[in-house]
Design a protein around this nucleic acid. Structure first.
Lengths: 358, 358
DNA sequence: CTAAAAAATGTAATCGATTACATCAAAACT
DNA sequence: AGTTTTGATGTAATCGATTACATTTTTTAG
């Protein structure tokens, strides 16, 4: 307001000094000067070269190379409100399917010049929210959420800051948001039914839960119960074992269960990692699979076919999820209106770990 | 220069209009106005709250919440020349070890408020270079390179733009750059020697190569040859099989080799994926492992112990690599002077897939 | 050859923060 | 009380691009 209030001379001294000292990266101004054009022209050469006469363009390009000029994305983003950057929030990279999905996603969006920014939430909703905030500050144009049913805080935050997002891995039907995934409930129901079809009636269900519980866990439980009721079997909570998401945990849990005299004819696992743990327990106990006990997995890891007891599992379309999420988000970012639900399908991979009792 | 050259009135009309129309995110100005302080104070509340009187601070914080203010990282980066962002360039996420390393890296740098930006190079040096350029534009403060021996173009580019970087997975001793990794050559030599110690003399070496060749491939070849010469065996190029980095390829290659009458007593694989392929070929051919043929892997995937023939493999310290790379880069970014070489070690995991011939 | 239209280029305001320095206020000394 | 020190806050230049609009140059049409 009162601009005569301060003495400006000192400021300029400082400025001159720093110009001499600092070994900065060349800016668009330097390029413009060297090429003898205005910054506007340089900028156009970089983003809309067809607007610039050929001879000028080559001159500018030469200057860019000579100076080793690299555009300052921060300045560009500040002006354009576009970072050409997409955030990806994933619970963990240790789950192979997630890594595949991310890789496919990255490839898809990279084709449109978007760069992926990664956040690992460790299955922690608070951390997820914090990551989203961080990504918002970074100015991401969109966000891909993998494998968690984010709570309302997250989605409403994203809505408030106008960042479009895609949820992936599973989905909800009654949602205004965008989903790319498969039907967890139906898929678990399917593989459970497969086991029932083979004559099993005395089964238990291992599902990743405990500290890693999320909406998907719940859907999987329901899928299991659906199959139970399809076959008019009696359900009890005792059939479901929630264990942390790692082989060691499921190994111990199965071992415990068996030593307590619980003798199911089949163990249905909600993911392959748990199935591997069960398999290890079986080996220790001396159970043959599938002769003494049947075991199924879920995820469709390639390797399940090479285990000492090749495991029947449900293959999840991880790569497809990545691609479709990428496309969905790209559409969202260009104001095309992608469908809110892209339903993908799992495929049963028979490994032979389910014995027919009929 | 001639500022009286243009008519400015129209510009301002546009401006006012856009202010009315655009539904922008609140800026630091809005917060300042609402809290009745200057933007400087708001800024200080956010970055150095201890400099602001408590009552003012709470007022500002309340305004931040009320407006749902999110700081604009681009503006901050533009002014400070710091993005709090680190680029990660990886050949692929499909290799479990890389994913683990990245996850550990992300965790390490996230603790210091850095965010990871991901680039997948697909084992392509050109793409790698392009990714680095892209990351430089994004303003990353540093870069982590995984599993590739980047060519000089990359390192000299990074030097020119003043972006510190860490190379990981393997290392070079005679380098001014920073490395975190293990000695590929020595590790392959060790597992090869292990096989020789068990009396094998007729061995072949499967190494990921072909389109995915890189410096590491070469180091591994050398490690194999080192062991050969340690045992005074005769070397021939025919002992080395370069195959693409996937199980299918190694399966086919071993099958081909076997059908041509090549009958080694052991197959040494430079990674677990190739070993799995060989194992599959063995199963198809009807070879028992290790009774009819010995097979070793390299990577130390957990799952190798659960295969129908548990495979002896060399465990790579992936997580450690991620952590140490993170620390190294963090030090580099704070002008501490980390050592240029952090050598980590592999451990032999005996699966029982090597038969003793003695 | 001139006028009109189209193409190329330049000017300078602008995006939203940070921060050096100035200023003002309050506390601590004489 | 007056002076100095310390603490809190404000002012406004600055970072490096983009881009609306003005201006100049070139091309096309008459």
């Amino acid at each position: 307001m009162q601009s005569d209030k301060y003495d400006k001379s000192k400021r300029f001294d400082k400025l001159k000094e720093s110009k001499k000292i600092a070994r900065k990266r060349p800016t668009i101004n330097d390029v413009a000067q060297l090429a003898n054009v205005s910054t506007a022209t340089v900028s156009r050469c970089l983003s809309k070269p067809e607007l610039v006469r050929l001879d000028v363009r080559t001159r500018v390009e030469a200057s860019v190379v000579e100076l080793g000029y690299v555009l300052d994305g921060a300045a560009k983003t500040l002006k354009t409100h576009q970072s050409k950057t997409i955030g990806v929030i994933v619970p963990t990279l240790e789950i192979g399917g997630y890594a595949s999905a991310i890789q496919a996603f990255e490839k898809t969006v990279a084709a449109e010049k978007y760069t992926a920014i990664l956040g690992v939430s460790d299955f922690d909703a608070d951390k997820e929210l914090q990551l989203a905030h961080n990504l918002a500050e970074k100015g991401v144009d969109g966000i891909m959420l993998i494998g968690m049913d984010s709570d309302d805080r997250l989605t409403s935050f994203l809505e408030k800051v106008h960042i479009p997002h895609v949820n992936s891995w599973h989905f909800r039907r009654d949602s205004k948001y965008h989903w790319v995934g498969f039907d967890n409930r139906a898929a678990i129901q399917a593989i459970t039914s497969y086991v029932f079809q083979h004559g099993h009636r005395d089964v238990v269900f291992f599902v990743g839960g405990a500290e890693h519980a999320n909406a998907r866990t719940e859907l999987r439980r329901q899928g299991f119960m659906d199959a139970i009721s399809d076959y008019n079997l009696e359900f009890s909570e005792g059939l479901i074992f929630e264990v942390p998401y790692n082989s060691k945990a499921s190994q111990l849990e199965f071992h415990r269960l068996w030593s307590l005299g619980n003798r199911p004819t089949a163990v249905i696992c909600a993911n392959d990692i748990l199935a591997i743990g069960v398999l290890r327990a079986c080996k220790k106990i001396g159970l043959r699979v599938p002769d003494d006990i049947s075991v199924t997995g879920f995820d469709g890891l390639d390797i399940m076919a090479d285990l000492w007891a090749p495991i029947t599992t449900m293959a999840v379309p991880a790569k497809q999820i990545g691609e479709e999420s990428g496309n969905c988000l790209l559409n969202l970012l260009t104001d095309k209106n992608p469908k809110t639900l892209t339903e993908l399908h799992c495929t049963l991979v028979e490994g032979g770990s389910v014995k027919s009792l009929i």
